[in-house]
């Protein structure tokens, strides 16, 4: 195992700002920071997930001038995302098969992803709403992070690529984090997801989705806070002297999301939107990529204005015979 004193780590990280754009927890969301003093952990998880780096809420794709000369947005900055939790790292892994495809590779996403060093922090004290271990990983999974830190009080233990450990100046240590890991894992509630994709397909035409959608007010809180939701809209901003094409977040919970030019809306009813969201994560994603589209971070549970609880819905789906 390797270790580094926290102040030494942060000093080093501070020195890297400039060479890298550093995206770090700063209150309710991650921000690109100018100084490590801006880093602020507001509980275990920020409200907004760090997906906003990989898929910004509003992102310019290209612009044009009055002569219609097109300039594509330069996406070659180098980045460090610091402080991601294992669930958030996994969420980025789950975005890859959607944006990094052979047929339609998304250069904006791929460049950001390629040019980003991910430094995660394991979760010593998971929240009551965490259910990550349901998905075959846990609070101490490094996953696709380049470096995973374990908070030991005054210092971090580190696990990751040799060159990054050396870059920060980690030194050898005899310690390990097994005890912390076991303790954290034991605190996490699990949901039973065995057979859920098939079950959801079976009950898709029943009243199940109508029933669970009753309380949903169809706002976009769950989708916007979710680290794996990636739906977007493309909009042109035309002005007299040119314009730009931007990509902005969208949400399958919005009525307008499937509003077609003809006026027809196949998901006008609330439960059709809810069905899309639940099945996308728990049926379509598994069938397409052999992985669930949910990482169990619990944000949707915590911040839903009406306490729609996906853990409960999956449980109910499992036992639904209607």
């Amino acid at each position: 195992m390797k270790r580094i004193e926290k102040n030494k780590f942060y000093e080093k990280l501070n020195g890297m700002i400039g060479e890298y754009r550093v995206f770090a927890p700063s209150g309710d969301r991650y921000r690109y920071i100018e100084d490590v003093s801006e880093i602020k952990f507001d509980g275990l998880l920020t409200k907004m997930s760090p997906k906003a780096h990989f898929l910004p809420q509003e992102e310019e794709l290209f612009r044009w001038d009055e002569k219609e000369n097109i300039k594509v947005k330069d996406v070659n900055d180098r980045y460090i995302v610091f402080g991601m939790r294992p669930c958030e790292v996994r969420a980025v892994t789950l975005l890859d098969p959607t944006f990094d495809t052979e047929k339609f590779p998304d250069p904006y996403y791929i460049n950001r992803r390629k040019n980003t060093i991910i430094i995660s922090i394991a979760c010593n004290e998971p929240l009551e709403t965490c259910f990550c271990t349901s998905f075959g990983y846990g609070p101490f999974t490094k996953g696709d992070a380049d470096l995973m830190l374990v908070d030991m009080g005054d210092y971090f233990l580190g696990e990751g690529d040799e060159d990054i450990l050396n870059l920060f100046g980690f030194t050898d240590s005899e310690e390990d984090y097994r005890e912390l890991k076991e303790k954290a894992e034991s605190r996490i509630g699990r949901i039973e997801i065995e057979g859920i994709p098939e079950k959801l397909e079976q009950i898709r035409e029943t009243d199940f989705f109508k029933k669970i959608t009753q309380r949903c007010i169809t706002c976009g809180t769950c989708t916007f806070l979710c680290p794996t939701c990636y739906c977007f809209d493309i909009q042109d901003r035309n002005r007299l002297n040119g314009g730009k094409r931007v990509r902005v977040w969208d949400s399958c919970m919005f009525k307008i999301y499937t509003h077609e030019t003809s006026g027809h809306n196949p998901r006008y009813e609330e439960h059709r939107r809810m069905r899309q969201r639940v099945m996308h994560k728990f049926a379509y994603y598994p069938s397409l990529y052999n992985q669930y589209g949910c990482v169990g971070c619990g944000r949707c549970v915590t911040y839903c204005p009406v306490n729609f609880d996906i853990r409960e819905v999956i449980r109910e789906a499992g036992g639904y015979n209607g």
Partner: peptide, 11 residues
Amino acid sequence: RCIRCYACREA
């Protein structure tokens, strides 16, 4: 701080 989720509108 608004994220345009429209929770206000829907609630």
